[in-house]
Amino acid sequence: MVEATIIGAGVAGLCIARELLDRGADVMLVDRHTKSGAHACSWWAGGMLAPLCEGESAEEPVVRLGREAADWWEAKTEAVHRCGSLVVSPAHDKSDLVQFARRTTGFREVTGSEISNLEPDLGNRFSKGLFFESEAHLAPRTALDQLRDSLVADGGQFAQDDADPAKYAQRGLTIDCRGYQAKDRHKDLRGVKGEMLILSCPDVALTRPIRMLHPRIPLYIVPRGEGIFMLGATMVEGHAGKHVTARALLELLSAAYALNPAFGEAEVIETGVDSRPAFPDNLPRIRRDGNLISANGLFRHGFLLAPALARMVADLIFDNKNPEVMDETAA
């Protein structure tokens, strides 16, 4: 019987626990906190399962491995919506849309009237867009809570401890999923600050994530249902401070306003800021040091890549199969 202790109950830790449990392991999840919340980077995620769109600037493995995500989440939770995603650009940034189309696949070009059929509340504000029909999104907090509940129901253990993974590794197989906290073990791990807002705006209804092309940051708005929207996300090299900056608020809110002026009446119900853990190529890594396996570096692709990362960790443990993101050297 495989017994594994997983340190860190963010999206990486929960997905790995679920995958190991499904393959017959005994799992114990150790975290400083007793439930999912604002302390975890994944709490603030957009929850877009949009591997094709990410292909615009991400490396090939993100697109390929990200395709596993929607099916995995759909099998393990009830948080997934398969409505595609829509990419638009403001009129003065039309060349950005041309470039986005050139660098991605799996979309169809849509006209202004098709856009207003897909999303009536965008009205006639956009004359051209890209529709990635096969993409999906999920409600991140629901997904985290459902994973946690299903793990408990299926015999997974949870323990509260501000854990040193090395201490647990002395007793047995341990998987370090602490995200940016694991900086102590990975010299090449860095934080990339992200800022986001949650808006309540019952006047606007959207069905799917809308990406608005912006020269500097990937800007998107994800509907959470019942008039709630997640608006993200900035990317700043450097670990996060405590609060969102005025600039982030300005940029994010003006994008929402450009999408539909009714967002001007929205209430800002939450602001979030955290550090995405990233390695220099912004791709995840699995590293092994004896009994201690590290799974980290999901960057801005937590929900998108955690299922593939979990599968690879399980393949390594059960089948001794070296995953493609394995990196034995620099642990």
Binding site: R190, G191, V236, E237, G238, A240, G241, R247
Partner: peptide, 17 residues
């Protein structure tokens, strides 16, 4: 150097790169 990340040297991982 963006000022907000400079105050507590938050960007130092990147600057080291």
């Amino acid at each position: 150097l963006r000022r907000e990340s400079g105050q507590d040297l938050a960007g130092q991982d990147f600057w080291q790169l």
